[in-house]
Amino acid sequence: MKIAVCVSHVPDTAAKINIGSDGKTLDPNGVTFIVNPYDEFAVEEALKTKEKIGGETVAISLGTDANKETLRKVLAMGIDNAVLLKDDSYRDSISVAKALAEEIKAQNAELVFFGKQSVDFDNSVVGQLTAEFLGYNCISVVVSFSLEGNKIICEREIEGGKEIVETTLPALITAQKGLNDPRYASLKGIMAAKKKEILEKQPSAASNSIEIITMKKPSPKQAGKILGTDATAVPELVRLLREEAKVI
């Protein structure tokens, strides 16, 4: 069976975010990019599933040449093949999902893993959208996954607990932290990944339905008051919470 995993290339979570001069985009200067943290869980689950049932794994990323760095990293973890859907333009989630769905169809992958959310635009929707375009069954925010024959059972994290969800192949799963412990790339894996070819393809043109009017930084919070250095400040703290903030 062909197993696909979709990965995105995102600003490091420690990065300071600056807005570009157009007031609508991120200024990428000085920002390091990493494999989207949730996608590492998706990659690990794809690798584990292949180890169990055999088949072939392919990683797909949509973006610029810079995304090759992320694709190399997942090849080094053990993914067999990589495809870059090369596109420099701004795409909204729906438009990204359409392009990914086309490629997954072309790859004939019956099982697909995504991270539950890309930590740049934080929409948490590209997996579900892609599944809809493919007509695949989809379970999001998954913390445990099992596949027996055609049948899938997952645990999905919700407020205050977990849902046990059942479905069948073909399916798309979005990974939440806790699903597994992503492996580190071995030296051998890193060497092998350097030699692998990343297939470049042109996705169909974007048609966005979301328009960014402005991008800005949140107004900085005024640093508050330090009321003291020990328990003697507690009555004043509790009084402020009650009388000024009115939250308790």
Binding site: P11, T13, K16, I17, I19, K24, L26, V119, D120, F121, D122, N208, S209, I210, E211, I212, I213, T214, M215, K216, K217, P218
Partner: peptide, 20 residues
């Protein structure tokens, strides 16, 4: 409708409109 939403985990905000 103009919607404001956080991105980069709240390190920035975007104002958007839907054109569909």
């Amino acid at each position: 409708i103009i919607a404001t939403r956080p991105i980069y985990a709240g390190k920035a905000l975007i104002e958007v409109k839907l054109t569909s």
